[in-house]
Nucleic acid binder design. Structure first.
Ligand code: FES
Ligand code: FES
Lengths: 144, 144
DNA sequence: ATTATTTAGGATAAATTTGTCCGAAATAAG
DNA sequence: CTTATTTCGGACAAATTTATCCTAAATAAT
């Protein structure tokens, strides 16, 4: 469904959000540990999220990653997925035709579009805030 | 969403079904042309579908692939996807935890399970027959 | 029997995704 | 200013997926 990079990116962003709600910055190393992801690979993903304006990065001692608190509520899961995996998952053809086109649909088009749109709506309606809150109160987990 | 192998496999199966409804066998070469897929790669996928009992294969002149006509109605999209991509897509965790477990859910579990189940239900309810019919009457297309 | 045709299957290669390594750049603190 | 720390970014490597090649096995037709 999502790429490995996207899975790590989502988990990392949620963890950063939890810390940011406590006005804490968090280092790459700590993120990778909490998210159970390879450090250097996670660095690339965070870099890309920073370029997409989803998280902020700071170099040097006391450096690390954080998310502007006012943004935590407005950032949606959709934004994270889109930043890392692009929009193929939201608009691509289920059978891999160059583009999904209702005027020349593939055999699964009618059935597939509904699922795809549900996914998109779900991701657009899910805020980073609720994901971070669920984690903070111990309702959900990033690793096992 | 689906692997490339699965996309090819679905398209190939639909094409074979259309031909089988006319009591025609179809060769690998013709399938690959109609589905716009690499010949040798398609061969592997068809081999796997044959092993999974979804299609029948016959060697030699006049050989090729076909589907038992009585099966066309009972084979579901789910069977094809499951044969090629396994069941990770149906039961795997959206954030890549080793297994999805509602008692120790990842942050997206509640939101994700609904989408995943919808997909599963859709695939279980979509018969090869309806997909093949849509293609035969020119309503849908395998390439563009 | 021989031949031509078609799928089976193993080995290999290319492409993509995932993951690592290391020096450069920024920056906080002594 | 120097040093230690942390992210940045490019090059490289490993793993997986996608794709190719070639020989063997089956089989239909002559
Ligand atoms: S054309 Fe294939 S999903 Fe729309
Ligand atoms: S635990 Fe992640 S989707 Fe169920």
């Amino acid at each position: 469904m999502f790429s490995k990079a996207c899975e790590y990116g989502i988990k990392a962003t949620i963890y950063i959000a939890v810390k940011s709600m406590r006005q804490e910055r968090v280092s790459l190393k700590e993120i990778a540990e909490e998210v159970d992801s390879p450090v250097a690979f996670t660095a690339k993903i965070l870099q890309s999220l920073a370029k997409n304006g989803i998280i902020d990065s700071h170099k040097g001692p006391t450096g690390g990653f954080q998310i502007e608190e006012s943004k935590i509520d407005t950032i949606k899961l959709h934004d994270i997925v889109h930043a890392i995996d692009g929009d193929k998952i939201f608009s691509g053809c289920g059978l891999g035709l160059e583009q999904c086109d209702a005027r020349q649909p593939c055999p699964v088009h009618d059935k597939f579009v509904g699922i795809r749109d549900n996914l998109k709506i779900m991701l657009q309606n899910t805020s980073l805030y609720e994901l971070a809150t669920g984690l903070e109160i111990g309702l959900t987990h990033l690793k096992r």
